[in-house]
Design a protein around this nucleic acid. Sequence first.
DNA 1: ATGAAGTGTAAAGAAATGTAAAAGTTTGGA
DNA 2: TCCAAACTTTTACATTTCTTTACACTTCAT
Lengths: 226, 226
Amino acid sequence: MNKILIIDDDEELCELVSEYLSVEGFQTEDVHDGASGLQKALSDEFDMVILDVMLPKMNGFDVLRELRQTSQIPVLMLTARGDDMERIVGLEIGADDYLPKPFNPRELVARLRAILRRVQETKEDREVENGKLHIDNVEVSVAARSAKLDGEELNLTSVEFDLLVALLKEAGKVVPKEDLSRTVLDREISPFDRSLDMHISNLRKKLDNDRIKTIRSVGYIYTMNI
Amino acid sequence: MNKILIIDDDEELCELVSEYLSVEGFQTEDVHDGASGLQKALSDEFDMVILDVMLPKMNGFDVLRELRQTSQIPVLMLTARGDDMERIVGLEIGADDYLPKPFNPRELVARLRAILRRVQETKEDREVENGKLHIDNVEVSVAARSAKLDGEELNLTSVEFDLLVALLKEAGKVVPKEDLSRTVLDREISPFDRSLDMHISNLRKKLDNDRIKTIRSVGYIYTMNI
DNA sequence: ATGAAGTGTAAAGAAATGTAAAAGTTTGGA
DNA sequence: TCCAAACTTTTACATTTCTTTACACTTCAT
């Protein structure tokens, strides 16, 4: 569930929006001036901010500028209809979108979802780019050469780590022993080489889930839920 | 330089926008119907697409829907002013933003930058500028031959410093012992030469993080937090 | 069922690594 | 020049990691 912070001095509007958003599956909280809005926004408990430009004490642009010093939280700004300048300034100092008042609540939701989707995707892209593999309860960072099971660091040897990565990269597909030997042990497999089997055995012990299955006379597969 | 594909049947508008965008530092190319627009968009040579809704042969929504089957390229849609429905549909099927026509070119640029900012933030993590290596909490100035951990000067010997630089330059990749011996100790490694291992051991003590990992029978790797 | 081939894994053996301490080398000042 | 401190390399041994061996067990074709 996404938590959204609404910063707007119009309490009636806040209530209306909150109601609509809760129907759409968002959790909301609203504050009515810039200073306390900024404080809340920096508190790290929200996924997104809806920010009005016209505010008592500290206007929306000032809040946004302050916020962007340290935070990347997505911000959708509410502006007066037709004021192009305001829209531009907002986007240039780091708003993710704006919506002119008065707005259609359906459109508000569509925009919120568009922004969240964007953020989510770039996060995933970044993870992939940096070599993160995340399958069910195991999480592997290739760059950090660390593997976690249920959030807890696994103490894997170098070969075990490479083996896990090789399997996770092809999760759900059978990986032939020949391939594993080449990528993990860096040599061709020979008829009585049991080294790989031993590493599988040790890895299974450490993972302690039954995800690594054997495909007789072919290789191994890391199975996924669903 | 970012390459932008403009899909709009209004050739005059395409030219105007292209001109404006080139001044702002973008490269552009324009096509005037949906089918060839889709083809271009899938060609992987653009960083972003500006897509008009009203198009001959294949309208903007159809193009977007097709495009989203396989591509995550950012798309900004151009819609008729005031048509909420269009905006919403566009966002829901995967546009990253929309802009109602007629639009202020400054606003177009602001929106393009906002979207690209989101997408491009990935590349900023490692700075390798003017002889400085900065990875997580260690910072090395090659020119000054100084290394800092959490802002505090590390008292490294000459070999330790060179070793750290050699590892940081390839952070996230395994550096073979042979290479390290050549670049750091300036000699070929021999079977029972343990000098490098000692320097690694001493460097690890001083760094006091667990970033330097061993890859048995290959070399060492400086791992990164992601 | 029966045997051949493949697999699981404990345990022994081999190889590589970690590191304290000794030995050798360099450096900078008196 | 000589010495002492700082640095590097070698030595030696403990430890870890990887491979091989050995044997019990499973699977599959006959």
